[in-house]
């Protein structure tokens, strides 16, 4: 008889613990304003990403199509996986001096691990991290980017 009562009380206790758990889910069911679900991609416009978020390396240009990159190659040296290739070229300045400047700053987004070391070590702060995040592409070639825009040149006053 005793074991029968134990059996019944076990069942009742079991049902009780299930109800305790259901109380939590019911609480959230009836207070929908506590829910945190977001409708992506519908809310794309309203999404705010932290300003330090590391999405992609970019090189900011000012309105005269000028950047701050000297082509020193320090970012290339510091990149752990060879995502950056610096191709520099020699030019002759107006004063007749020979000078090396950046030709192409090639960035392989597909290889980048977003470690921030290139941005941190760049002596002239020429590159920054952009807050982009939708990086899916149909074609792998489109992940290789040239960061300095065509026809761009170095800003005045950048220490070389």
């Amino acid at each position: 008889m005793k074991s029968f009562f134990n059996y019944i009380s076990e069942i009742l206790r079991g049902i009780w613990t299930l109800l305790v758990g259901m109380r939590v889910t019911a609480k959230y069911f009836f207070t929908p304003w506590r829910n945190v679900t977001q409708q992506y991609p519908e809310n794309r416009e309203k999404l705010v990403l932290a300003d330090r978020f590391r999405g992609e390396v970019v090189m900011p240009h000012n309105e005269n199509n000028e950047h701050a990159c000297t082509g020193c190659g320090i970012c290339e040296l510091n990149c752990p996986n060879g995502s950056i290739e610096i191709i520099s070229k020699s030019i002759v300045t107006e004063e007749g001096k020979k000078k090396r400047i950046i030709d192409q700053h090639i960035y392989h987004l597909g290889m980048c691990t977003f470690c921030n070391l290139c941005v941190k070590t760049c002596p002239s702060d020429a590159i920054v991290m952009a807050q982009t995040f939708e990086h899916a592409h149909w074609d792998r070639a489109s992940l290789t980017k040239i960061l300095n825009k065509p026809g761009s040149k170095i800003m005045d006053g950048v220490k070389e």
Partner: peptide, 14 residues
């Protein structure tokens, strides 16, 4: 979100 704000990444913080 706290990580994203301070470290700049959510999973691979570095």
């Amino acid at each position: 979100d706290i990580f994203e704000e301070t470290c700049g990444a959510r999973l691979t913080l570095n």
